[in-house]
Amino acid sequence: MAVCVYRTSRVVVQGITGKEGRYHALACRDYGTKVVAGVTPGKGGMDVEGIPVYNTMEEAVQNNHPNVSLIFVPPPFAADAILEAVGSGIKTIVCITEGIPVLDMVKVKRVIEKENVTLIGPNCPGIITPGATKIGIMPGHIFKRGSVGIISRSGTLLYETADQITKAGLGQSTCVGIGGDPIIGTDYIYWLERFEQDPETEAVMMVGEIGGNAEEKAAEYVKNHMKKPVFAFIAGRTAPPGRRMGHAGAIIMGKSGTAEYKYEVLRASGVHTIENPGYIGETIYKTLKEEYSL
């Protein structure tokens, strides 16, 4: 099984003729992902190494029947691109774009909630089911099919975590980067729920960071609904308050949102917290073996 994206997922890449869009569309295809179409307004009729390019999402959907969209459109036009994908009937959207204005995302969020669309990101590395499909910009070779599901707010930190888990002798069922912005399409809870139902996933790793209260809300969910073991690391323990640490979402305001507070809440909810990021893989491996005999 796995979660949300599968070998059968058919992907359309919006912004496929840009430098990044092109590179990653081809890298995804090389990984085994079915990249069936691309969209760039004004470039319809072209092809990117055999992938047909259309002017509109509507045409792409009519001709090649994609069911997932992967977006590389620049920030001023990205919100519109997401809404175009929604308008064409796509129900799973991965938006890589970093730097979308918050008030644009406020509007997008209203629409995707109403239309029941799963939006991954924005400002995220995408989603991968190792060995089956990669819809995003992550380096495929560090992932190995296995039993741990990963949910991460940060991109490179997702790679670091997956790499450690692979090196510890485990693997991943599905890994998703939910994005580092203040407003994102899906939160931890969305993915925790799906990982809990997924027969292939035996444990879940949450990679969080300072700012907001998404980890706190996730902790509450874990306490009430999760039977599978959940692990968590929170980045930014040493970050000074009031400063935005790269991600627009990673900023400490007041007491809540600090790493200490998040760890406290997570621990109290039965989450296995990992406070040293050098020991993520090792801790998961040992805990699963010793406490869960997995």
Partner: peptide
């Protein structure tokens, strides 16, 4: 000097630890 905001924060954390 790190690539990625999350990893940059983590690098600071791991140095401190």
């Amino acid at each position: 000097m790190v690539n990625g905001a999350g990893l940059a924060m983590t690098t600071m954390d791991v140095i401190k630890l």
